[in-house]
Amino acid sequence: MKELKEFTIPFVGLKLGKHQFNFELNKAFFEHFEYDEFNNAAINLNVLLDKTSTLLEFTLTFDGSVNVACDITNELYDQEVSGSYKFVVKFGEEYNDENEDLLIIPHGSYEVNIQQFIYESIVLAMPSRKIHPGVEDGTLKSDILDKLEELSPKAIDEESAVEDENTDPRWDSLKKLLTDK
């Protein structure tokens, strides 16, 4: 996958200590990863780089909202998303990103691209079930919700209870046998 240049951080000219970078993420960032769950995105990302003589420690802190479809009604709404993620970049013989919290880059590297860590931390911060706030508090009016209410198992139980009252009297004596045990 092609790297986005804006998320490549050149660390070779930075002094030892903490350095801060700020980014604004939108839908285009997620389209780069071919992730189409978000209709729109407005996320503020704060990257804190703590440079030491042997390693680089990154802390990603993000907050904002993404426009997604509700899992129940398919209505669009803005889902708040926030979180943080820490990972370490060390120097080694060759590039290795097998460990999710540790990135090893070759000696002599002068920059590191953090776009994959940003993408994964935001997508994993999303709730597993996306439910419109109007569904939770009962204020959303939707044809889909009305149909779900109509077809709910509770309605089926009420219909079967009505049928039980209107049974054929010839079967009543057999029902007594079941309760005599």
Rank of each mutant, 00 (worst) to 15 (best):
P133D: 07
A41Q: 02
L145G: 12
T139Y: 08
E75A: 14
L151F: 14
Q20M: 05
K181G: 07
E150Y: 13
E136I: 13
Q20R: 14
G83L: 03
D172H: 11
N96G: 02
S152L: 10
T167E: 09
G17M: 08
F11W: 12
S53R: 15
D137R: 06
L60A: 07
K130Y: 00
E24W: 07
V68R: 11
L25S: 01
N22H: 13
Q20F: 11
M1L: 12
F7R: 13
E34L: 09
N113Q: 06
E159H: 10
F23D: 08
E158V: 12
N96L: 02
E163K: 15
A41P: 00
F38M: 09
Y77G: 07
G13N: 15
K51Q: 05
Y85R: 06
E6F: 06
N46S: 15
S160R: 12
S84A: 12
N67G: 05
V88M: 04
K147G: 07
H32V: 00
Y35C: 00
P169L: 07
G64L: 09
T52R: 09
P169V: 07
E80K: 15
F33I: 04
E149H: 14
T8S: 15
E57A: 13
Y35A: 02
L76S: 10
F87G: 01
K141C: 07
D101M: 02
K176P: 04
L45T: 06
E24V: 11
E158Q: 14
S173N: 10
S173W: 10
E94M: 08
C70L: 11
